[in-house]
Amino acid sequence: MDKAIPSSKSWIGIIQIITAAVCWGTLGIFSTYLNQIGFSGWQTTILRIVTAALLVLVMLPKLWPHLIKLRPKQWIGLAFQSLIGVLGMSLCYFFAVIYVGAGPAVALLYTAPVFSLLFSTLLLNESITRQSALLALMAVFGVGLTML
């Protein structure tokens, strides 16, 4: 089989990536709209989490075989990632949209690679390679160009 032609699994992955990009890209628009009709940052965050929970419930039959394989330590890590990564990011992001607008909030959110690099160094003892530093710098440069 020619590797240049994507398989059906590749197409599913491509569609999922495009769908995720559309969802992520419209997040600022929806949060601005929800704020304009009276939703607070807390309410928008709760709406996002409840919607995600409902989607997970719909997908549970597909996810369950993978979930039952997780060890207790992995469940704890998943819980912390959910609380800090999802809840923390959502709250901060939606309040930022309210106070500074969607554009600057999104731009600042895209500095995440720099923070990932720093936290992986501090918390996981990973070294900063030339390539990772260059990519983080490119992310900041890209955000700067976007803001211009």
Rank of each mutant, 00 (worst) to 15 (best):
A96N: 09
K3N: 06
Y93R: 00
K62A: 15
M59A: 15
A107S: 06
P65M: 06
F94L: 00
I76L: 15
G28K: 01
K3S: 07
M1H: 11
I18N: 01
L124V: 05
T121G: 10
L123V: 04
R48G: 02
Q81D: 08
I5H: 13
I128T: 04
L60H: 14
M59D: 13
S116P: 02
F141D: 00
V22T: 07
T146M: 13
M138V: 14
W75P: 13
S31R: 07
G144F: 04
N35W: 15
S7V: 06
A139C: 06
A52G: 08
A112W: 03
A96K: 02
W75R: 08
I15M: 13
G101K: 03
A102I: 03
A96R: 06
A107W: 00
I68Q: 10
R130W: 07
W64V: 12
G28N: 01
C23G: 10
R71Y: 11
S82Y: 13
Y33M: 09
K73Q: 13
S90H: 14
N35F: 15
K3R: 08
I37L: 09
T44P: 02
M59I: 12
A79R: 10
T19Y: 10
T26Y: 08
E126L: 08
G85R: 08
I17P: 02
T146A: 14
Q131E: 07
A139T: 02
S120N: 07
S7R: 15
G88M: 08
S90N: 15
H66I: 05
W24H: 10
W24T: 11
V106G: 06
F80M: 07
L60G: 09
K73I: 03
Q131C: 03
V100S: 13
T51W: 11
L122W: 15
L91K: 14
G28L: 01
F119V: 04
K9I: 00
V140Y: 06
G41Y: 14
Y110G: 01
A105F: 00
N125Y: 12
Y110L: 02
L60W: 15
L27W: 03
Y110M: 00
Q131S: 13
L67N: 11
R48A: 04
K69I: 08
F141E: 02
T146C: 13
A53Y: 07
G144K: 02
G25W: 05
A105I: 00
K73N: 13
L34I: 05
I68N: 09
W75E: 07
Q131W: 14
G38P: 05
L118N: 01
T19N: 03
I12P: 03
V97W: 08
Y93S: 01
A53C: 14
L145G: 05
V100R: 12
L87N: 14
W24M: 10
L134K: 08
F119G: 00
L148T: 05
G38D: 07
Q16M: 10
Q81W: 13
L60F: 15
